[in-house]
């Protein structure tokens, strides 16, 4: 109970502090530069000053936080990648040389590429299929809700769920893992799935696909519903069958949305680390970049230089998507 109380107090203090800043700073601004009464000339001047200051009162905390938590670290990571394990002695390109001669890096890079190809493709594909089909049946919303559900589950929680499915029992014991039970049921030999090289990566990817399909489905379903009915009706009159309508009429119209879904999942895949850490701890050839970075950061006291280099690799992979996003946002702003 004591813990609960102190937790409550910290929570309230934290939130109140934040609210107090906004109220306080704006109150002060209105007091120093009153704009609601007084001589017209004064008001005009005060208003101009206040209008120049107020955006920064509103933006201040956000800009500070973004700078401290995202912008500065990116810069500092670049710097650290040229420094040694403690981040104090300059080592030039040594970390990069190490990286490109390390087998582990190639393993994780290869695995990451596999993840990047398989997960976004599979999740988008399933999402699109399910979105199309659920839009046509009366219990579609319930189905969607259930397929969307894994989205709420943490990667660690999902790992437990799936580890249970991949569970393996030796000898003649009954298999309590669903997958092995099925294999046995169909007369096969039970396997320790998570230790089979290369394939184990796919067993891990299944988890992320399971989680992300719902996301793809929800967004694509909205896009599909945004397609004007007239275009579909016109295609029906033109004699197209169901599949032709899907591939030639519907998919091209939501191409932009598919790209957005794809890139969103791609970014998520690049950052994924919880699943690998929890499922295999990167053993049996399942290492990925994000997890490798994490282990260099902490294991054996940590090596900040090498960790930073790996982080930079992830960043470089993300940059094309970032540029594309910014372009899109700019085009959209001009449209307004």
């Amino acid at each position: 109970m004591g813990q609960l109380a102190s937790a409550l107090v910290t929570m309230i203090l934290g939130v109140m502090g934040c609210a107090a800043y906004f109220y306080g700073s704006n109150f002060l601004l209105d007091k120093i530069f009153p704009t609601k009464s007084g001589a017209a000339a004064d008001v005009a001047r005060n208003l101009r000053v206040a209008n120049n200051i107020r955006p920064w009162l509103f933006l201040g905390p956000a800009v500070l936080l973004l700078t401290f938590y995202l912008f500065y670290p990116v810069i500092d990571s670049i710097r650290l990648s040229f420094y040694g394990r403690s981040g104090e002695d300059f080592v030039g390109l040594a970390n990069y040389k190490w990286l490109f001669s390390s087998d582990e890096f190639y393993e994780s890079f290869r695995n990451n590429m596999l993840w990047l190809i398989v997960v976004p493709t599979a999740a988008t594909f399933f999402g699109l299929i399910i979105a199309t089909m659920t839009d046509r049946i009366w219990w579609g919303n319930i189905a969607k809700s259930l397929i969307f559900m894994p989205m709420a589950i943490s990667f660690v929680g999902a790992s437990v769920i799936w580890k249970f499915i991949y569970d393996f029992r030796t000898g003649g014991e009954d298999q309590i893992g669903l997958l092995n039970a099925l294999v046995v049921f169909f007369g096969g030999e039970p396997q320790t799935w998570l230790t089979i090289p290369i394939w184990n990566n796919f067993f891990l990817m299944v988890i992320l696909i399971w989680i992300q399909t719902g996301f793809a489905m929800v967004i694509l379903s909205a896009a599909l519903r945004g397609i004007p009915d007239e275009t579909i009706e016109a295609a029906v009159l033109d004699g197209a069958n169901g599949f032709q309508i899907f591939y030639k009429i519907m998919v091209p119209q939501i191409w932009g949305t598919i790209a957005v879904v794809w890139t969103t999942i791609t970014i998520l895949v690049l950052k994924v680390f919880d699943i690998v850490l929890a499922m295999t701890n990167a053993q049996w050839g399942t290492q990925v970049l994000a997890n490798q970075m994490f282990s260099w950061m902490f294991n054996g006291g940590g090596d900040f230089g090498r960790g930073a280099v790996i982080a930079l690799v992830i960043m470089v992979l993300v940059i094309p998507i970032m540029v594309w996003n910014i372009r899109r946002a700019n085009a959209e702003m001009e449209g307004r």
């Binding site: 973004l66 938590y69 995202l70 912008f71 500065y72 670290p73 990116v74 500092d76 990571s77 650290l80 981040g87 970014i267 690049l270 950052k271 680390f273 994000a290 970075m293 994490f294 950061m297 900040f304 960790g307 930073a308 790996i310 982080a311 930079l312 992830i314 960043m315 993300v318 998507i321 970032m322 996003n325 910014i326 946002a329």
Partner: peptide
């Protein structure tokens, strides 16, 4: 900048 930071991987931030 906000749109750009949207995709910055967390991993970048951890060490600094």
């Amino acid at each position: 900048a906000v749109v750009g930071l949207l995709v910055v991987p967390l991993q970048m931030s951890l060490i600094p």
